[in-house]
Design a protein around this nucleic acid. Sequence first.
DNA 1: CCTTGCGGGTGTC
DNA 2: GACACCCGCAAGG
Length: 356
Amino acid sequence: MLKGADDSVMEQEDSASRHGEMTSWDINDIKLPQHVSQIDWFQEWPDSYVKHIYSSEDKNAQRHHSSWAMRNTNNHNSRILKKSCLGVVVCGNNCSTLDGRKIYLRPAICDKARQKQQRKCCPNCNGPLRLLSCRGHGGYPVTNFWRHEGQFIFFQSKGAHDHPRPETKLEAEARRSIQKAKTAFSPSSLRLKRIQEVESLAGAVPTQEPLLLPNRDAHMPPAILRGYLSKSSQEPMLSSCSGHLPYPRTAGEDRASREAPTWSRSLTQHVLPVAEGGHDPFRSDLGPLGDGSCGTQSPLAYGGGCLCVPPQATPQGRPCPMASGAQPHPQQGWGRHQVCLKYCNNDVFFNLNPLR
DNA sequence: CCTTGCGGGTGTC
DNA sequence: GACACCCGCAAGG
């Protein structure tokens, strides 16, 4: 199936590869190369028909990470893990942010969570969300295969993503967390709590009215985000930052990055000015809260607008403090990589924190 | 609550 | 048989 397409892309791959072992194998081969002269640095956005050999020490490879939203697919082969792409969640209104960026949310991996996600509204315009399915592999989703063999982890991708990049896991998680924190500690909810307390004392039944209060003076208690910051910054994450690092062996691999603006740059450019302009970064421009499920999105609107909009990255995006000078090596790169990610994460959340 | 991995099962080609 | 996909379960964060 799709052998023709495979073959044509394989030619590109061959020309791009500097090492024979990179393309002389297939993930389904009974025996995979045992002598690998050079292993690859982890690829966060693998695209097209590429193969990589990672070190079995590579934490990202161990976890079968990808910044594409990949879900597990049962191929009834316990030796080869197969994953298929879920595409990207876009705004049904095709809205753009003020600076012209589109909404590209990360589809939830879990089916139920994804259905729930699609019932929510665009964080930018409150319009309906739409799942843009991946059909980059002969009309089917792009598939990724992982196979652990000795000291190596073999990776093979089949198909070229025919959709924009979703936000990364880090971005999606940050957005969710900020939304939760915002929802829990917005003046509206605090006010609701107070009103409920007062009314319960008075024997009255609380109404939904507090939910309709404008969110203009929304204010994030420092502890909330700082707590999240400290927690997040301690985790080695698969941040978009990692995609900016200079990998030793990534020739011709990152097709999608060509069309991609730098999200990290846009994070600083879009979040910082807002935060520093004396406005509340979490202020909702979308009107009052409380209009059902969409209303609960409103606290997210600002963070979502900032976080979800610039998911695409160029390898030359704003470098991490470590990335500009560091040349991570596959065998020892994770540690240094992790340090960089810590900086990046701090950077990301630092910029998100209105009260720093 | 969500992600991730596993595996049984079904339908199509 | 290969492949895509549905479902539920379990572990873990």
